[in-house]
Write a protein that binds this DNA or RNA. Structure first.
Length: 359
DNA sequence: CCCATTTGACCATT
DNA sequence: AATGGTCAAATGGG
């Protein structure tokens, strides 16, 4: 991206990470239950840090990325930023079976940020599935998964074609706990910034009360936002790929991040990045999650951050995987941070470049 | 009639 | 060959 140097990038990442860690520690001291307001707030804060870090990573701070021929096999399944370092969570470990497919995407399409959320719905609400997450999704498939009681549903952004938004998600109900849903998100929404279409804003100022933002444009499961907050419980997915012993890598021992991506040789990347990525992300992450009270001005496709814990996966270079996943190896959260530099996978979302959809 | 979902077929990967 | 992911025709609801 446009950081002055990679050092700026590292500094930024470091600051963000420290903030995140401190929030985690605060959480440890405070946490008495999922439903506590302070806990929800902390979840939001952590979520914001995660997003910020992931954006930085995906934008490949200071570098424009490099064609990383993925030579560093290491066999590590994947990397993640885990919100909470609790590798002892057996339940979470048992649910790792479908993680392999996360990497498959990278071969079909450019690698995309991938993360999972676990969302619990309360049975008394009779919900069929997790409620609205603020985006507008369109279901495009359902599949029975081997060894899973419940089928997996596939969703893509409603505005996939209109706005070239390639975000998708998969929803899988947990075998053990039918009230628990695992939602795997792939790709980030770009529909709200509209590289080609400007988003209608504030159609009715009277409705800018933040509660409304949850139910934008979604016919799936209308629900009262307050109940969403109360009923959702975010469970942590710790994704360490612990089948392998991994070295603890100091946050500052990154590999040099001055690469060039394959594509960057074809296009002037900086322009694209500026236009699309910055524009894409900034509205989503400016403040809502942390402030907790300004959800207004959300586009139909805007993310409502409900404070669920998200677990980010970087499904790209194996480099990432070597550096990451130290959280499981230590109790010190600081040492467990994922500082990896992901190969930059900026999807150059040319508004005009849509030849390949749909044969 | 329009649009989202359903669902079997098809494709890619392992 | 088995499995997971996506497509797209059929279906159904508003």
């Amino acid at each position: 991206m446009e950081y002055g140097s990679s050092w700026d990038y590292y500094t930024l990442v470091n600051e963000l990470t420290q903030g995140m860690e401190q929030a985690k520690q605060l959480r440890v001291h405070l946490s008495s239950g999922y439903m506590e307001p302070q806990d929800l707030l902390l979840q939001r804060i952590l979520s914001s840090y995660e997003k910020a870090l992931s954006i930085l990573k995906w934008n490949g701070g200071g570098s424009v990325g490099q064609s990383q021929p993925t030579p560093l096999a290491s066999g590590a399944p994947e990397s993640s930023i885990s919100v909470e370092g609790s590798p002892q969570n057996e339940e979470a470990k048992n649910n790792f079976n479908d993680y392999q497919d996360l990497r498959d995407v990278s071969k079909k399409r450019k690698t995309q940020p991938t993360w999972t959320e676990q969302v619990r719905v309360s049975p008394e609400n009779g919900l069929e599935g997790p409620a609205d997450d603020g985006y507008s999704w369109r279901k495009y498939g359902q599949k029975d998964i081997l060894g899973a009681k419940y089928p997996r549903s596939y969703y893509r952004c409603t505005y996939r074609h209109m706005r070239n938004c390639w975000a998708t998600k998969q929803v899988q109900r947990s075998d053990d706990d039918p009230t628990l849903f695992e939602i795997t998100y792939k790709g980030t929404h770009v529909c709200n910034t509209g590289t080609s279409i400007s988003v209608p804003q504030h159609p009715s100022p009277a409705k800018q009360e933040f509660k409304h933002s949850y139910n934008h444009n979604n016919h799936q499961q209308p629900q009262q936002p307050n109940q969403i907050l109360m009923n959702f419980r975010a469970n942590l997915r710790v994704n360490t790929g612990d089948s392998e012993a991994k070295e603890i890598v100091s946050p500052f021992s990154f590999p040099s991040a001055t690469h060039m991506d394959d594509e960057s040789q074809l296009f002037p990347m900086s322009a694209l990045v500026d236009e699309n990525i910055l524009g894409t992300y900034s509205p989503s992450f400016v403040s809502p999650a942390t402030s907790g009270s300004n959800y207004f001005s959300m586009s139909p496709c805007h993310m409502a951050n409900l404070g669920r814990i998200k677990n980010l996966h970087s499904s790209e270079s194996d480099l990432t995987e070597i550096i990451s996943a130290t959280a499981s190896a230590t109790n010190s959260p600081i040492a467990g941070l994922d500082f990896s530099i992901d190969s930059v996978e900026l999807d150059p979302n040319f508004p005009f470049n849509a030849p390949g959809f749909f044969t």
